[in-house]
């Protein structure tokens, strides 16, 4: 009997994109990187980071595919472990929803409240939790970035700490081997300029997932019921030996960017081509000289 293949999926909870962020008075103190004083988190609606949903969906698909394959071959078990580093609330909800979708177990690395952690520390916490949990990762799937921190670093940091190769921002996946285990993985991603790179790799591996990779599923009622019985292991940052104050940089100040003011509106009536024509002329006369001044449009004589 072979050891199971352990697939870790890193999941983060983020404020819903639709929620309005407000700042409370006060300044982040020098001694830590706490955001509590400055971003109001009380009334925020939390969601699973959108890119992490693609990572989880891919893990479930890989498990389904391998389980189908091994029916005719030697038994290879696949276990999906959802892991999250963050506050207990709302961290637990995103793990429960991952369990409802198909993860087998979950790990929560608890952090102090209102912490926007240095990605280097986040990755260290995740890596140490995987070690402490005792199930050596074979494949780590993550989103390509989170929609709150927008760092896009944890997958690569984690890969380096684990000694794994990583392929980032993948938008396509297939398993090319027939042995029932993941000895041949083919992924693709789009790079600057529009070219698509196709990579082949084998385990162990870190893959960060982007849009286009798959279409996510939604939890079923039996899935939600089963999730209640699945184990969630908790660690604290402290017991893993990570000091959240040892971050490499300080966030000195945060501010809300100025809101755009409603601009100049032009109404056209589709009945009369003339009006539309005049409107468009007017808009072009307003905009184009600004672009010429910026050097973004060149007028040829």
């Amino acid at each position: 009997m072979m050891d199971p293949i352990y697939i870790y999926v890193c999941i983060k909870q983020v404020p819903d994109t639709g929620s309005t962020l407000a700042l409370a008075s006060g300044v982040a103190s020098e001694s830590d990187v706490s955001f509590g004083e400055v971003i109001k988190t009380d009334n925020l609606k939390w969601i699973t980071n959108p890119y992490d949903e693609y990572a989880l969906e891919q893990a479930i698909r890989i498990k389904e595919e391998l389980t189908r394959k091994v029916e005719n071959l030697s038994a290879v078990a696949v276990q999906i472990i959802a892991i999250r580093l963050g506050e207990t609330v709302p961290g637990i909800e995103v793990l429960r929803s991952a369990l409802a979708l198909g993860a087998d177990e979950a790990i929560l690395v608890e952090t102090p409240k209102h912490l926007l952690l240095d990605p280097l520390l986040t990755a260290r916490g995740l890596m140490l939790a995987m070690k402490k949990h005792g199930k050596q990762p074979d494949l780590v799937l993550t989103g390509k970035e989170s929609s709150d921190g927008n760092y896009s670093q944890v997958p690569q940091l984690l890969a380096q700490m684990l000694g794994f190769p990583a392929i980032t921002s993948i938008s396509g996946y297939c398993n090319t081997d027939t042995s029932g285990i993941l000895s041949g993985i083919e992924v693709c991603r789009e790079v600057e300029g529009g070219d698509t790179e196709v990579f082949t790799a084998r385990l162990p591996l870190v893959l960060s997932c982007s849009r286009g990779l798959n279409t996510i599923r939604y939890p079923s009622v039996p899935g939600i019921m089963r999730a209640k019985k699945k184990p969630i292991t908790c660690f604290t940052l402290e017991e893993l030996g990570v000091d959240f104050r040892s971050g490499k940089y300080l966030i000195e100040n945060i501010s809300l960017p100025p809101e755009r003011t409603v601009g100049k509106m032009f109404l056209t009536s589709t009945d009369t081509a003339d009006t539309t024509n005049e409107t468009v002329k007017e808009v072009v006369q307003e905009i184009m000289p600004q672009l010429v001044a910026l050097g973004d449009v060149v007028r040829s004589q």
């Binding site: 404020p15 994109t17 962020l21 971003i39 926007l116 929609s147 709150d148 921190g149 927008n150 971050g247 490499k248 940089y249 300080l250 966030i251 000195e252 100040n253 945060i254 501010s255 809300l256 960017p257």
Partner: peptide
């Protein structure tokens, strides 16, 4: 650098 997909702008320096 922006945070929260641009909803917040943070100023940062190294420790």
């Amino acid at each position: 650098r922006p945070l929260f997909t641009g909803k917040i702008l943070a100023t940062v320096r190294r420790r």
